[in-house]
Simulated assay, not measured.
Amino acid sequence: MKLHNRVFLLLGGTGGIGQALISPLQAGGARVIVASRQSQNAAVPAGVEVVALDLAAADLDQQLDQLSRAHPEIDGVIHCAGQNRFAAVDRLTVEAIDDQLTVNLRSAMLVGRHFAPRFAASGRGALVFVGSTFGSIGFPGYTAYCASKFGLRGFSEALRRELADTAVQVLYVAPRATATAMNPEAVNQLNKALGNKTDSPQQVAAEIIRAMVRGERRRFLGWPEKLFVVINGILPKLVDKAMLKQLPVIRRFLDTGVTS
């Protein structure tokens, strides 16, 4: 897929990976429209338009209808908005669970539901969903986040197969740990203690762009994380044993009480 003369709606474009995507998209010749719940306060580079969109809203489907009427030129959507909470399951509030399922999964499903038929009818379009390694490997302290990202991976896979006889590209990209403001300090310290490598948002953005340009269907980032994804799929007991050894360290950071 060429980026030149494309118009991308970028969800989650005001920080982290989304913000890092703006420059390479523009460099490739694409026009970028960033959606933000507080559009009037969003800081974006020159040449980027900001539109109002609340991914957690009950009427998100209606907001998407309005957005499409205002911007019929959109022919690509990149969904990299997300929320997480690092906490033991018994310390997760109902609100925290709902927030993660709503933003990470429900909003992506409604975006796909809205744009897929429109792109298929036009014979052109791309739907890019940014997931996580934790969408393939359940990790202690991220029960709700993993549930939402497992769901996102399943949704994007099913949608891609549903649109296989159309010109619509459906891409799922799964980064490993990424240095964004979404991570609390407890998670940063946990990654150091476990020796987990962390990528910059710019590194992840470059991989997403590369996968888009190559017309890929899925991309898992990081080594050995992508190997663990395969092992977890065929020999999950091996990953169970490895994580059992890590559990005392994980519990130490879970017990700090720092969840956001």
Score class of each variant (00 low, 15 high):
Y172W: 13
K149I: 01
R251F: 00
E73L: 03
R218S: 11
A30Q: 09
S107M: 10
L254S: 12
G195K: 08
A116V: 06
L92A: 01
Q19H: 14
S107G: 08
T178P: 02
W223R: 13
A126M: 09
P184H: 10
G215T: 08
V7D: 03
A27M: 07
T143E: 07
V77T: 04
E162Y: 07
D199A: 15
R106Q: 04
I22M: 03
V130H: 02
G47R: 00
F119M: 04
N196T: 09
G12E: 11
G28F: 13
I74M: 04
L152H: 03
Q26D: 03
A167Q: 13
M212H: 05
D54L: 13
T133D: 01
A81P: 05
I137V: 15
F220E: 11
G151D: 01
I33P: 05
D98Y: 05
V130W: 04
V130S: 03
V230E: 02
F115R: 08
L110M: 15
I231R: 13
E73V: 07
R69E: 11
L159Y: 05
S136D: 10
A211F: 10
A35V: 06
A96F: 01
G131P: 02
Q63W: 11
R176F: 00
V7Q: 09
W223H: 13
P45C: 14
G151R: 01
